[in-house]
């Protein structure tokens, strides 16, 4: 289990606004080194913005985001590039470069950021692809492999520079149950064997409970619950209960303004 005093990610009172809209509202979050954190939340809760913030794709409007003690909000573009080299991101679609083979996808960060010769790069490609079970598919194009394999290939690319944190954006999206289990086992395996801190964004509950050391639930740009899987499963909080059990009735559904719907249908204001 991760050391409870050793935080690798510290978000302190972070707010992100796009124009008038507040997407993340004074969030505070600590992630321990080596921890597997799953961030849950419905559509529009702010999960993707939080991931973009942690992956240095979006800047915070206020507050601090410290990774390994370094505030990434105050970094220059060059410093952010150094930070980006130390993390890995698995995108929802895999985001493989379609014009390159799987092997070349994995090799790209190595060719761009290291002085390694081609022979060494080829060895590393094999090692990374073996980790995700795709070594024999190195020569194939992304269009020639299945959705689950694309996710695993994207993960091999994310691992290319030996990141200390991996962010997973909806790793289960669009996969069949067997592939979901394979990807989950891969996330757990990489975390346990390489010690890499794992932050997963999902709303796939089975997968979330299988992977997480700890879960947080986001709603309207804020964290509304935080705890280990057992605690979240047995929570009496109506919002957590509704989300975890996937119920149609509850606080999330009650937010829909039925009067506004009627007025909209009848053309009234």
């Amino acid at each position: 289990m991760p050391d409870p005093t050793d935080n690798i990610i510290e978000c302190d009172d972070v707010t992100v606004r796009f124009g008038e809209q507040t997407v993340l509202d004074r969030l505070t979050l600590n992630v321990r080194r080596g921890e597997r954190l799953v961030i849950l939340g419905g559509s529009g809760a702010g999960k993707s913005t939080l991931l973009n913030l942690l992956a240095a794709e979006t800047r915070a409007t206020s507050g601090q985001v410290r990774i390994d003690g370094q505030d990434i909000c105050g970094m220059s573009e060059t410093q952010l590039d150094d930070y980006r080299k130390s993390i890995g991101v698995l995108f929802q679609s895999g985001a493989l470069f379609q014009s390159m083979t799987i092997g070349d996808n994995v090799a790209l960060p190595l060719r761009e950021h290291t002085d390694l010769d081609e022979e060494t790069i080829q060895i590393i490609i094999k090692m990374k692809l073996e980790l995700v079970g795709l070594r024999e598919h190195a020569h194939k194009l992304p269009s020639q492999i299945s959705g689950g394999m694309k996710k695993r290939a994207g993960l091999a690319r994310a691992l290319a520079l030996d990141p200390k944190i991996i962010f997973y954006d909806e790793p289960s999206a669009g996969l069949d149950p067997v592939s979901v289990t394979e990807v989950d086992q891969l996330m757990i395996g990489l975390n346990e064997t390489l010690g890499v801190t794992t932050v997963v964004i999902t709303h796939e509950m089975v997968s979330a409970f299988r992977v997480a050391h700890r879960l947080v639930l986001m709603d309207q740009g804020q964290f509304v619950a935080d705890g280990p899987p057992d605690e979240m499963k047995n929570s009496s909080d109506p919002l957590v209960y509704q989300f975890v059990n996937g119920l149609a009735e509850g606080p999330l559904a009650d937010r829909r303004d039925r009067d506004a719907y009627t007025a909209d249908l009848l053309g009234a204001y």
Binding site: K85, V89, A95
Partner: peptide, 22 residues
């Protein structure tokens, strides 16, 4: 455009590779 839609540009940036340069 297809690369932008498929998050490939975002993936380049996440690997500290400038899409403009690359």
């Amino acid at each position: 455009g297809t690369m932008a839609v498929a998050e490939e540009l975002k993936a380049l940036r996440s690997h500290a590779i400038s899409p403009i340069r690359f």
